[in-house]
Structures are given as structure tokens and as C-alpha cells.
Amino acid sequence: MRPPATILPLRVRGLSFAAGGRTLLEDVSFTLPRGGITAIIGPNGAGKSLTLRLCHGLLAPLSGTVEWCGDGGRIGGTSRHAMVFQRPVMLRRSARANLAHAIASVIGRDVAARTQAALERFGLEALADRPARLLSGGEQQRLAIARAWALEPEVLFLDEPSSHLDPGATRQIEQIMTQLAQEGLTMLMTTHDFQQARRLAGRVLFLNKGRLVEDADTARFFGAPATEEARAFIAGELLW
């Protein structure tokens, strides 16, 4: 039997997670089809980052399932989903070596050529030989996205990709994400900034207190929120 050529759709069913006796995520279900940017929004502590980590396999759920079309989100043994963290994890090496390290770990062939392609694709050639940890916050996040892109994922998870960046760097990251979406990359991101969700995402998953409250088109969600919780969140009222 031929292996499936795609890991999508991602089916999340009844996902729950608890730590230290506290339930942090409860019975979250959604399906992620191919294409577009989906934003998980909600107040602090809603379980946004946790949902991404469970989907990416960094954590094991207490109950429920994360089902990819391929075997654990891999095709031919290579993982086809990657993640960009809120605070980019930069190795104590040059920008180029950061890319090469990830490519060698995941793909393992044509490392130099793939590294060069990623540097060019994201305009990082001038920074290639600088120590990655001495780049600015925006440059580091761009490098982190390049590093994830270089792993040829079908799905990219982004956890608050611009929450610690200034407006200029944020705009740059958003432009990159828009371009990647146009090229067909499927993205699931978290953001606490619902204006950013509005600018980028076609679909919104609204989490509150560990539950999925709304799963809607971005325009519909912001135009006519179906729940009182979503309405209060959009109006900027604190949710407790």
C-alpha cells in the first residue's frame, strides 16, 4: 500500500489535559483541513499554547486523540509538522548553523543546499554568519520561521509568534505568514491579540478556561459572535 501523500486533515477529538490536579484543557475537538491560517484566541490561561503543544506532540494528552492522516504526522519517517515558539530557541551558533542543525536532524540530506535556500527565501543571507543569539528579536523570530520552513512541513504551528516584537517586526512576521499561506502552507497559530487574528486568520478557535467556546469564520466570529463569552472578549472585557 502506498503511504498517504499528506498528513492532513488533522483531527483533534475530545482533547483534555491536566497538571497538578488542575484541568487545563477539557474536551476540545476540531478538524484542521488543508490550507489557510487558523488562529486560536482567548485570554491568558485559556489553553492556547497547550493545544498547540498537544497537536505537535510535545505533550501527551490526558485523554482524547490527535490524529494525523499519516503515521503520527510523519511521512516516510519524516515529521511533516513543525513549530515556532513564542521565544525563539536559538542555539549558540551562527544563523546558518542553526538552520543546518535542524535540517540535518529532521531531513538529513542536502543540508547545505537547503540551508542556503532558507537563508535566501527569508532574506537572511547578510545575517548568516552572525551568532544567532545576538540577532534582534525580530531577526531571531524570522530565523526561527525559516528554520521551521526548511523542514518542509505541511503544517506549521506558531505560538504567539510576535507577542514580544515591536510593531515593525510584527508586521514583517505577519507578511511572511501571509506569503506562506499563499504558497499553501497550513498554519495553526495562537495569539492573545484578536486584531492580529482578524488580520491573518480565515478561521478562529476561541478558547476560554480550557474549553473550545467557538469555532467560526473570522468574519462571522468578529461580526456576530455566537456566545456571550466571545462578545465580552472582543469588547475587551476581562473573562473570569
Partner: peptide, 11 residues
């Protein structure tokens, strides 16, 4: 510091 990134890339 590296754990999550390394786990993400299978190291």
C-alpha cells in the same frame, strides 16, 4: 532551554 525545540525536531 533547548528541550522543546529539540523535541520538536526529534532530538
Amino acid at each position: 532551554e533547548y528541550r522543546e525545540h529539540f523535541r520538536s525536531i526529534g532530538l
